[in-house]
Amino acid sequence: MLIWKSLAEVPADLRRTVVTLGNFDGVHRGHRQVLRRVVELAREQDALAVAVTFTPHPRAVHRPEVPHEDIVSTEQRLLLLEEAGIDAVLLQRYSLEFARQGPEEFVRGMFVDGLRACAVVVGHDVRFGQDNAGDFTAMVALGERHGFEVEAVDEFPALEGATPERRCSSTWIREALAAGDVAQAAAVLGRNHVLAGEVVHGFARGRELGFPTANLAADVAGMVPADGVYAGWLHDADGAAHPAAISIGSNPTFEGVSRVVEAHVIDRPEERVEDFDLYGQHVDVEFVERLRGMVAYEGVEKLVAQMRDDVDRARAILGAAPRPS
């Protein structure tokens, strides 16, 4: 997949494109319906399938005082767009200056002169240009004026619990993750939520208690769910998936202060216990189901008993689920 970080990087001899526009945070089920149609139309018209997206998230630029957490990192988002079949991504740097473009200036510069779009595929609720002044009707009119087709796709597929007021959206996913409801987040995403990061040395408390863990570095990629214990999978650098009990929190039993993501691989093969060294590896941690919230226990014995129960429950949950390929 081609990645352009500005219109200046787009080749002058670029062939025609079919373009879509959005933040694509999470690249959830609704996003993928739009992307699927972009790819289909591009193949029909012998054109490139192109997604225009932004960094940082526009909300972080317009309202910097309000905390904002992306569901996936930029690297994860690009990988998901590639998996959806997109040929090229324009990763546009978003700024207040960029946002001051009027709807026609934006469309002419981006779609017409920049990307040579023969078609633009968007959701019905698309907004663009300064103060979000442009809408779907405006996009259609601009397409007629500048020679490209405009197609709308219903980007909010049917989902249990989804209504016109509660549709598939990145906001819903963030709310679910903030509440620790990784199963609901997965329903909207269309896949399990994943964090990515490097395994680093921790305090080794888990190892001392008989539950060694892979601790992720603080700069983990992806939105970290609420504190608690989860059943999930750890994908190592070789791509192997290992069942895991995942803990997120500050280790309240030991009066910890730093929030940590750590995964205990369940039932490691005895012959590999000694050489199962993940330090320095970049791994993915995939969440399946929340087991419980984070609790401070009175004494190590009660904590160990709870950890054994967590592992047993995680084993049962993951044993009933298909192992990731």
Rank of each mutant, 00 (worst) to 15 (best):
Q130N: 13
R37M: 09
G190R: 11
M110A: 04
L209C: 11
M294K: 07
V220D: 02
L318M: 10
D219W: 04
L14G: 08
L234R: 01
A244Q: 00
D267K: 06
I173K: 02
A133D: 13
A60H: 03
D312L: 12
G109V: 06
F111H: 04
R191T: 10
D267I: 06
R145Y: 02
E75H: 12
V66N: 07
E69V: 15
E40D: 15
H57L: 10
L209Y: 07
G102C: 08
R116A: 13
L41W: 06
A84T: 13
A99C: 12
L81E: 04
L79P: 00
P225H: 14
D277H: 14
A314E: 00
E289Q: 15
E82L: 04
P252H: 10
A119L: 06
V283Q: 01
A320G: 13
A321Q: 14
N215Q: 12
Q45C: 07
M307R: 05
I246S: 02
E40W: 02
S170C: 07
Q33I: 03
D13G: 10
G202T: 13
I173Y: 01
C118L: 13
T163H: 06
M139K: 04
D135K: 05
P164E: 05
E175M: 09
R205E: 08
G129E: 06
V72G: 02
R174L: 11
L303H: 09
C118D: 09
S95W: 08
V257N: 10
G280C: 07
H28T: 11
S258P: 00
T20C: 15
R205W: 04
L81N: 09
A237N: 08
F211C: 02
T137I: 07
A226W: 06
Q92H: 14
V126N: 00
E97K: 11
P64C: 11
D131I: 00
G26K: 02
M110V: 09
